[in-house]
Amino acid sequence: MPTLPRRLSPSADAYIMAGPIKDFSALKSLRKEIKAQDEARQAAAAEAKRREQETRRDADIFRSSIGNVKPLAVPPKFTPDIPRPLPIARQHLADEQAALAASLSDDFNIETLLDTDETLSFARNGIGPDVMRKLRRGHWTIQQQLDLHGLRREEAREALAEFLRLAAKRGWRCVRIIHGKGLGSINKEPVLKSKVRNWLVQKEEVLAFCQATAAEGGSGALLVLLKGQAA
């Protein structure tokens, strides 16, 4: 019975099947090649194992260096501290209004200061009759007006004082004050008409005033000349 060749390895089988071995040197060369392939596979497996061990070792070193890890606490939501607007100085405003109103007295007697004509016009000392004629004829453009219709006496006094303060600040030269004809009053008498004249005379910035023309309000309004540009 013939002796079968010894099975060396899968690679050897493949080599043998590729062709017959003719001499001993060919067999020796085959064994060297198979050995080299086995060593290469072992080296690759050893390298893969070494890399795996190195990766695990690095992971262990990292975990041991950081210790027990806890999730970071979520910081509280930031709410900007927006400063509140300063409170309105209501008492200060009230004091200013009281001072303005107090500067216009009801006890001031102006009868001797007014002209004797039916319009009861007024001109401060130093204001000549030519200025009054210009005022009556509408020489100056009316720059602003104040309507006191429907206001009570105290409300009208405060409104007039504030209006004159603003007029001085803005440099208005000629304004109109509407006090009404008193048609809606109980006795059909203009309540504010005499009061407004009384208050205007007490203000130094008022140079003169007269009854408005029919087109500008007639007996229900006054044209007032204020300090400003030269008359």
Rank of each mutant, 00 (worst) to 15 (best):
residue 130 D to R: 08
residue 153 R to L: 14
residue 85 P to M: 10
residue 19 G to T: 15
residue 51 R to Q: 00
residue 211 Q to P: 02
residue 228 G to F: 05
residue 102 A to V: 09
residue 92 H to C: 01
residue 101 A to F: 02
residue 54 E to C: 02
residue 94 A to T: 09
residue 224 V to Y: 03
residue 92 H to P: 01
residue 84 R to G: 09
residue 111 E to S: 14
residue 52 E to A: 00
residue 111 E to L: 10
residue 76 P to H: 10
residue 199 W to N: 06
residue 104 L to V: 00
residue 187 N to I: 02
residue 91 Q to M: 08
residue 225 L to N: 11
residue 137 R to Y: 12
residue 65 S to I: 07
residue 144 Q to K: 08
residue 78 F to L: 12
residue 72 L to H: 07
residue 27 L to P: 08
residue 228 G to C: 13
residue 189 E to D: 13
residue 43 A to I: 06
residue 156 A to D: 04
residue 98 A to F: 11
residue 203 K to C: 09
residue 119 T to C: 14
residue 191 V to P: 02
residue 9 S to N: 06
residue 27 L to T: 07
residue 65 S to C: 13
residue 171 G to V: 08
residue 214 A to Q: 12
residue 105 S to P: 02
residue 162 E to H: 06
residue 109 N to E: 13
residue 206 V to L: 06
residue 173 R to E: 12
residue 189 E to N: 15
residue 162 E to W: 11
residue 72 L to G: 00
residue 208 A to N: 08
residue 24 F to R: 09
residue 44 A to I: 05
residue 18 A to P: 06
residue 177 I to R: 09
residue 158 E to I: 11
residue 28 K to R: 14
residue 74 V to M: 04
residue 155 E to M: 08
residue 26 A to P: 01
residue 97 Q to Y: 11
residue 135 L to M: 07
residue 69 V to N: 05
residue 216 E to D: 10
residue 112 T to V: 13
residue 80 P to T: 13
residue 209 F to Q: 07
residue 39 E to N: 07
residue 15 Y to T: 12
residue 66 I to D: 03
residue 89 A to P: 06
residue 151 L to H: 11
residue 207 L to W: 10
residue 116 T to I: 12
residue 28 K to F: 02
residue 186 I to V: 07
residue 177 I to V: 15
residue 227 K to M: 09
residue 132 M to E: 01
residue 70 K to P: 00
residue 93 L to W: 15
residue 64 S to C: 04
residue 204 E to G: 02
residue 117 D to F: 04
residue 199 W to L: 03
residue 229 Q to S: 05
residue 182 G to F: 02
residue 85 P to K: 03
residue 158 E to V: 09
residue 3 T to L: 15
residue 137 R to N: 13
residue 183 L to Q: 13
residue 6 R to E: 07
